[in-house]
Design a binder for these strands. Structure first.
Length: 822
RNA sequence: GCCCGGAUGGCGGAAUGGCAGACGCGGAGGCCUCAAAAGCCUCUACUCGCAAGGGUGUGUGGGUUCGAGUCCCACUCCGGGCACCA
């Protein structure tokens, strides 16, 4: 499209100027009110895609808007530069992941700058930078010292072909390895964990205080999954000195227990299994151990065959409520990693137990009266207790407390809270990550690397093998070391940390990126934390945001961040995804629409305006064949602005007339509207309001009478100010043309609406007869109910609609509406 | 299965319980031009009508209200999250 100006040159001029003048660099001792705006740390995957663009457009708008509101805005940028894609690319190219990563960072950085998004680049942070690694390791050591990091055996996804542990995301739905195609096994291996479960309660409680989307808060609550219940003993029938410990949230259903179940991993399974059941039990355990977690749960997906796999152990336990013997089964629907790994089964009041009981022919004993007409299987809702001895007649809540007391007295019962949340497995058998700073000494065991010896850096002379095994594991130069305690020979830890650890504290490093002795100076960090506005994709609703919240709390507690707020992100905005052909637009799907092509046509300004205008920022957006036309439309809007400001076909006059007040009212109403829309993240309507104003001013100014100069200038300057955070380049250029020698547009204050001009002189009152609009009257805004009614009844078309009938009722809501009811 | 969203013209979308469809895209017609592009102007939910004007209309069915796209109940479909967590 032909533009009335050279868009490429114009945008470059301003981008260069913002960078060379350090317009958006901000110091920690800035006296202005502080504001911390942050977009989520990106993984550097190369040139920015539309998802990035959308994210940074919103972020940049916040930065520029808050700056115009007089605040010192911290707007940093960095790269989450460790991770699997770089490692895989390096394997393919037989090079080092750093080469690939540094290249991608430069590409992403350049395209972010081309978008006109402004940052304080002095504070740039990269996960794979030795200074960052050093501090990430420092934090690990602090966690270790405080007992928040520990090593334990855990069941993991193990690929025999790759000789490595896989993350859940690397396991295909059919239980095979994403890379080699081998069947993934479950294996118990020693791994490093962070004790996030210590913070489960605090993480759950403080969700309430966050100004985050409800959806995200709900997802966090569900992920933590707190549940209150009772743990108690089911004594073995053949040996009352032994017992099966179970957890339940429904102790009130104790009289309905018709069997018990242990997980395939349960330590007492061997003791419970009788010789005649050996074969069946072993077969089930074998199958469970080979199946990944994904595959193990897969059978419930297709509800058609809801087969609950399980086998009788041959043993019985005694139900403490009624003294009855019930059979013990082993089944993979009971997880070894939750509660006690064993349950009491109540098919009448639990759906899963009911399904299992049906398959295995086990009895169903109801303990809650079902409502009339109830036809289904399990009934899990409230009701009156039946068949339950001392609980009969109680409701479920009362029966729960009675049952708890009973179990405490009779069966080693104890009230217990369980969480779905597990400790965070942070070790990865990967090369391209932050090495875990410990060594293994035959004499001293696990020994932390002293802080003075940090960072522990991976060697450069490695060969990335397609086996997938980390070269760290076999690199003698790296692994062979001496014990810091005894000086004897020792082996370095070969595992690296989950990359989510890097993104869990980068926002703190931004506040003090120069600190060498520690991750950040808490005094400097306190000047900016917490982040006022965090912006990112909803795909990080659980993991990243939960881990970062955990880190913040833990850093305060271990003394790295004393006195800092315990929640890192006050407000969170999650922008919608961009989809194409129904699926997420992403590099891996190969359906990217590169932003670069638009910089030459509508410019970064046009593309930014498009992303703001196309719909509510939180909603997903479908990129279609029509989208380019909408983008062109945004470019045309900027062209019209350019021509208006350049007096294209406009003559100015010095005297005013009655039309001035109409324009001035529109200008001030738009200031009020756009300001309000900015605060509530309704950018699409803000753009619409600005388009409307431009249309109105354009028509007025091109009238044959000409435009009154003062009013015209006010209107155009206001348009430029309001558009500055959205389309920063072209507005800055026009402002410079109009105010030669003055300070730049982006140094101006956000305009204030004049309340006298925002208030309406007259409003349109609608008159309804039986709820149907029959007339529209111009009335003063302060009209009384009586006056409104009188005016309404006097109107000709209202009289016609009444047709002589007399109203039974008149509802007057002056000045908006009068409804005459017959 | 559970939880959370959503459903409005040809399309993206707008609308504190008070004029449904702002704004934009697309479409139609016109102006300008030798012609085109660009630009500008008018129209554009459906329907009856020559017109003035009328009727219908926000996924479906009920309800609350003087008045419902908006609130309540039930349902259908679409999207997302969690998924045997006892």
């Amino acid at each position: 499209m032909a533009r009335p100006f050279d868009v490429v040159a114009l945008e470059k001029k301003w981008q260069d100027r913002w960078r060379s003048e350090g317009t958006y660099e901000v110091d920690n001792d800035d006296p202005r009110e502080r504001y911390y705006a942050l977009c989520m740390y990106p993984y550097p995957s190369g040139v920015a895609h539309q998802g990035h663009v959308r994210n940074y457009v919103f972020g940049d708008l916040v930065v520029r808007y808050q700056t115009m509101r007089g605040k010192a805005v911290l707007s940093p940028f960095g790269f989450d530069s460790f991770g699997l894609p770089a490692e895989n690319a390096a394997i393919k190219a037989k090079s080092h992941p750093r080469v690939f990563t540094d290249q991608r960072i430069e590409e992403l950085k350049a395209s972010v700058q081309e978008l006109g998004a402004v940052y304080d680049w002095r504070r740039e942070v990269r996960s794979h930078d030795p200074a960052y690694i050093r501090n990430a390791q420092y934090i690990f050591l602090k966690f270790l010292e405080a007992g928040l990091a520990y090593r334990a055996e855990a069941p993991v996804n193990w690929c025999p072909g790759c000789a490595t542990v896989l993350a859940n995301e690397q396991v295909n739905a059919d239980g095979t390895c994403d890379r080699s195609g081998d069947v993934v096994e479950r294996k118990n291996l020693e791994q490093w964990f962070f004790k996030i479960t210590d913070y489960a309660d605090e993480l759950l409680e403080q969700v309430d205080q966050l100004q985050w989307p409800e959806r995200v808060k709900t997802m966090q609550r569900n992920w933590i999954g707190r549940s209150e219940g009772v743990e108690f003993d089911l004594p073995f029938a053949d040996d009352p000195s032994l017992a099966l410990r179970v957890f339940t949230t429904r102790p009130d259903t104790g009289f309905g227990v018709t069997y018990a179940v242990v997980a395939p991993e349960h330590p007492l399974l061997a003791r419970l299994t009788t010789s005649d059941q050996q074969a069946a039990v072993e077969e089930l355990v074998e199958r469970a151990s080979h199946a990944s977690e994904v595959e193990r749960t897969a059978t419930t997906d297709n509800g058609a065959e809801l087969t609950k796999r399980g086998a009788f152990t041959g043993s019985y336990v005694v139900n403490p409520f009624n003294g009855e013997r019930v059979p013990v089964y082993v089944a993979d629907y009971v997880l070894g990693t939750y509660g006690t790994g064993a349950i009491m089964a109540v098919p009448a009041e639990d759906e899963r137990d009911f399904a299992f009981a049906e398959v295995h022919g086990l009895p169903v004993e109801r303990t809650v009266a079902t409502p009339e007409g109830f036809a289904g299987g399990a009934y899990a809702d409230d009701g009156i207790k039946i068949n339950s001895g001392f609980m009969d007649g109680l409701d479920v809540a009362a029966a729960k407390s009675a049952a708890l007391e009973f179990l405490i007295a009779q069966a080693g019962g104890v009230a217990k809270v369980n969480y779905r949340l597990r400790d965070w497995l942070v070790s990865r058998q990967r090369f391209w990550g932050c090495p875990i700073p410990v060594v293994y000494c035959e004499v001293d065991g696990i020994v932390p690397v002293p802080v003075s010896q940090l960072p522990v850096l991976a060697p450069d002379d490695v060969v990335m093998e397609s086996t997938g095994q980390s070269p760290l594991a076999t690199h003698e130069g790296f692994r062979a070391t001496t014990c810091p305690t005894c000086g004897g020979p020792a082996r370095r830890e070969a595992d690296t940390m989950d990359t989510f650890t890097d993104s869990s504290w980068y926002f703190l490093r931004f506040t003090d990126p120069y600190s060498a002795e520690r991750p950040f100076d808490p005094v400097e960090a306190a000047k900016w934390m917490p982040v006022d506005q965090y912006i990112g994709g909803v795909e990080h609703a659980i993991l990243h945001l939960l881990y970062a919240r955990f880190y913040m709390k833990a850093l305060v507690d271990v003394g790295v961040a004393p006195g800092l707020p315990r929640e890192p992100f006050t407000r969170l905005f999650t922008q919608g995804m961009i989809r194409m052909d129904g699926s997420k637009m992403s590099k891996s799907k190969g359906n990217l629409v590169a932003p670069g092509q638009y910089y030459k046509t509508v410019g970064a300004d046009g593309l930014r305006l498009f992303h703001l205008f196309v719909g509510p920022p939180a909603d997903d957006f479908d990129w279609t064949s029509q989208t380019d036309e909408v983008i062109d439309g945004c470019g045309r809007f900027l062209d019209r602005l350019w021509r208006l400001a350049n007096l294209d076909d406009i003559t100015l006059r010095t005297d005013d007339d009655e039309s001035d007040v109409v324009v001035r009212r529109a200008v001030h109403k738009t200031i009020a509207k756009v300001s309000e829309d900015f605060e509530r993240w309704s950018y699409n309507t803000a753009v619409a309001a600005l388009m409307e104003l431009l249309n109105l001013v354009g028509k007025w100014a091109r009238d044959e009478r000409g435009a009154h100069e003062a009013t015209f200038n006010e209107a155009v300057d206001t348009l430029l100010l309001l558009l500055a955070p959205m389309a920063p380049h072209v507005t800055a250029e026009l402002w410079e043309q109009r105010h030669a020698g003055g300070s730049s547009l982006h140094a101006q204050s956000w305009p204030m609406a004049d309340p006298a001009l925002v208030a309406d002189e007259t409003v349109t009152m609608i008159v309804q007869v039986n709820g149907k609009v029959r007339a529209r009257l111009d009335v003063p805004p302060l009209i009384s109910e009586d006056e409104a009614t009188t005016l309404a009844l006097a109107d000709g078309s209202v009289q016609a609609a009444l047709d002589g009938a007399s109203p039974s009722r008149v509802v007057a809501r002056p000045p908006r509406m009068v409804n005459i009811v017959l």
